[in-house]
Computed example of a mutant assay.
Amino acid sequence: MKLESNGTLQIQKPINEVFEGIVNPEKMTKYFISESSGKLETGKNVIWKFPEFPDKFPIKDIKIETNRSISFVWDPDTVVTITLEALPDNSTLVKVNENGKEFNEDNLKWVLENTAGWANFLACMKAFLEYGIQLRKGAFEFMRKK
């Protein structure tokens, strides 16, 4: 049995704006990461840095379907897939799925933490794309190593 982390949220923006908000590091650094070595593009690898962690995270095996889906690997045991669906009111349904971990006690903790993390990603993206608000700013200072 494989574990999955999931999150879904509707964003009141057209699909092309939501897609660009995910693949474009100039947008994503406003609500999710602090640095990126480049745009998410099929076949390319990039490095992400988060403001609350000293580590850098390689993003590999990127696959892009414009205005439809983004998938990548940042944990060798999982694949992240973000799918976008245009809704009749010109908003976008965003679904995140990260899966591949084997069922065990340590990975149960992982699925809970990552589900919360993807919910945070979606809420931060919604706040930024709809209202220009940066929810992550200062939110995770407590996690920095002293």
Rank of each mutant, 00 (worst) to 15 (best):
K2R: 09
E4V: 12
N6T: 15
N6H: 10
G7P: 00
G7N: 04
T8H: 09
L9S: 05
L9N: 01
Q10L: 05
Q10Y: 03
I11D: 00
P14H: 02
P14W: 02
N16S: 08
E17D: 11
V18A: 03
F19T: 04
F19G: 00
E20P: 07
I22A: 04
V23D: 01
P25W: 03
E26T: 14
E26H: 13
K27L: 14
K27V: 15
M28L: 15
M28A: 15
K30T: 14
K30A: 15
Y31W: 15
F32L: 15
E35S: 15
S36D: 13
S37R: 09
G38C: 14
G38W: 11
G38E: 11
K39T: 15
L40S: 09
E41Q: 15
T42A: 07
T42N: 04
G43H: 13
V46D: 03
I47A: 07
I47M: 13
I47W: 05
W48D: 03
W48K: 05
K49D: 03
F50V: 10
F50S: 05
P51Y: 06
E52R: 11
E52H: 15
E52C: 11
E52S: 15
F53D: 12
F53H: 12
P54C: 10
D55Q: 15
D55N: 13
K56P: 04
F57W: 07
P58N: 09
I59C: 12
K60G: 06
D61V: 01
I62F: 02
I62D: 05
K63M: 09
K63L: 12
T66I: 10
N67E: 15
R68G: 10
R68L: 10
S69R: 05
F72M: 10
V73H: 02
W74Q: 08
D75N: 14
T78F: 04
T81Q: 10
L84A: 06
E85M: 04
E85F: 04
E85W: 00
A86C: 03
L87C: 08
L87V: 11
P88S: 06
N90W: 00
N90C: 06
N90G: 01
T92A: 00
V94F: 06
V94L: 12
E98L: 01
N99I: 01
G100Y: 06
K101I: 05
F103R: 06
N104T: 05
E105V: 12
D106W: 06
N107E: 00
N107V: 00
K109I: 11
W110R: 07
W110N: 09
V111R: 08
L112D: 09
E113V: 12
N114P: 01
T115Y: 02
A116I: 09
A116Q: 14
A116F: 07
G117W: 02
G117I: 05
A119H: 13
A119K: 13
N120S: 12
F121G: 04
F121A: 06
L122M: 07
L122V: 10
L122Y: 01
L122I: 08
A123L: 09
A123I: 03
C124M: 09
C124P: 02
A127F: 03
A127S: 13
F128H: 13
F128M: 02
L129A: 07
E130T: 05
Y131H: 11
G132H: 02
I133Q: 00
L135M: 12
K137V: 11
K137T: 11
G138E: 01
A139C: 05
F140Q: 13
E141T: 14
M143L: 14
K146T: 12
